[in-house]
Amino acid sequence: MRNQTVLISGASIAGPALAYWLDRYGFTVTVVERAPVLRPGGQAVDFKSETHLTVLERMGVLDEIRRRETGRTDVIYVDDRGREKARMTGEFLGGVVEILRGDLAEVLAEPTMGTCEYLIGDSVTALVESPSGVYVEFENAPARTFDLVVGCDGIHSRVRGLAFGPERDYVTYLGYYYCAAGAPGWGHDPAHKERNTAQAWHAPGRTATAGGSKAAHLYVFASPELDYDRRDIEAQRRIVMQRFAGMGGGVPDMLAELAQLPDFYLDSLSQVRLRGDYTRGRIALVGDSAYGNTLGGFGSGLAVVGAYVLAGELAVADGEHTVAYARYTEIMRRYAKIAGNPNGGRFLSPKTAVGIRLRNWFLGSPAFGLMMKYGDNAANDIDLRDYEVAAGV
């Protein structure tokens, strides 16, 4: 049954990782990606543990990821007069290895560009399941039927919306927004893999960070849920300008640069909470669409591990999706608990002056080291089965 056809929606991290493993196990894979091109650069993402690196190594991409990795960045929190108040270490922010998101997508997709079908600049518009497959309509491509469909299309997953129901039923807003603008220019240069620094200015409920490997600018702010057009970038720039107006330090200079910075991205900090399985019928969810938590710190690792597990269970079950999907949910529901609690907004941008002082104290305390150690342990808390051996590949 491994000659089954599988449609994967999304070509960021989970999507190409899943395509790699399914292709290796003999499935016929199509990947549809809404963006018009797979662009390099973008905001930096990271992997936190040896478990994550093991999956990347088994894919044969770890060396290339290390070649493209960015440098370590300490974020220094300063007051309006430039005096250091706290420091967030690059080890916490950048994990074991850090790479620009677009570069990672390119590295993950490259091995399957010649063997899998990629529909770039297209998206799924309808899903109709029957006992024999899933009939899929696309925005541009002709409709067709696939044996299985997997949504790897992020927190705002279209596949989840079509198959499971409205986003409001599965995505919880965490009370914050974040904006990343302007990819760092030094990410590829081997001369800049030493430690770097970024500066951050804070006020209750607002933090603005300039420099470093995550983005040229990073803004995090508390807010009631906003209603805005996600396609209107200029309107989103105005939201950020208004929210950070009146802050001191280097923030006025940041806002003056904001209009010229590329790769602008604004979104809510939200958490996906699926109360049941990560699957429904012939349709499954992997990565942020299933267990995303914005700025929670483990999204990239969960994406590649989830892809590895789902593809492996399908291979071991010889394509019998009811068996494989149940095992996938069982394994990943336990492992994905690591993303279940952190609210990155509350940590990065406390809403009160007292909260800011407590956060600054915590960053310099032994408790911060213990939190990092707990995160490392949790990120390794899974027994990675050797699916190639189990499936006889």
Rank of each mutant, 00 (worst) to 15 (best):
E106Q: 14
I65T: 02
A311C: 10
A235E: 10
G248C: 05
R238G: 06
D263Y: 06
G185Q: 10
V304G: 00
R206L: 12
W186R: 09
F27R: 02
T89V: 07
A391G: 04
G90F: 00
G246Y: 14
L261D: 08
Y135E: 14
T51H: 05
L18S: 03
V124H: 03
A126H: 14
V286R: 01
A339R: 02
W186P: 00
H321Y: 15
S349L: 02
Y176E: 01
Q236L: 06
L104W: 00
R81E: 13
L38V: 11
F264A: 06
A367W: 15
G10Y: 02
V124P: 00
A191C: 06
G287L: 03
E98V: 08
T329R: 02
S130D: 14
F347Y: 10
L62V: 10
E320C: 11
Q242C: 09
G82I: 03
R237L: 10
K373Y: 11
H202L: 08
N377S: 13
V96H: 09
L370H: 10
Y20A: 00
G211T: 04
A339V: 09
A181H: 04
A315G: 07
I65A: 03
R66N: 12
H156R: 14
V251C: 03
A215S: 14
T28A: 14
E234M: 09
A303S: 15
F298K: 03
F164S: 06
K373D: 15
G182F: 00
I155G: 01
L18C: 13
A203V: 12
Y177P: 01
G301M: 05
A391Y: 01
G205H: 02
L148Y: 12
M88Q: 10
L261K: 12
G26W: 02
R83F: 04
E234Y: 13
R158V: 13
S12P: 05
L314D: 00
A203Y: 05
H202Y: 08
D381G: 07
V150K: 00
A105W: 05
H202W: 08
R24K: 15
S130P: 00
I13R: 01
V6M: 12
Y178C: 13
R357D: 13
Q236V: 03
R275T: 14
R280Y: 06
D227E: 15
L255D: 05
P166M: 09
V304D: 00
L93H: 03
V159S: 01
V354W: 12
Y265A: 03
G71L: 02
A11I: 07
M241A: 12
T294R: 09
P111N: 06
K48R: 15
R243D: 06
P166F: 11
Y170N: 04
C179Q: 02
V61I: 11
L258W: 03
R282M: 13
E313T: 05
F347H: 07
T89R: 00
L162T: 10
K337N: 09
R58E: 12
A17V: 11
C152D: 07
M113D: 04
S300P: 04
G102P: 05
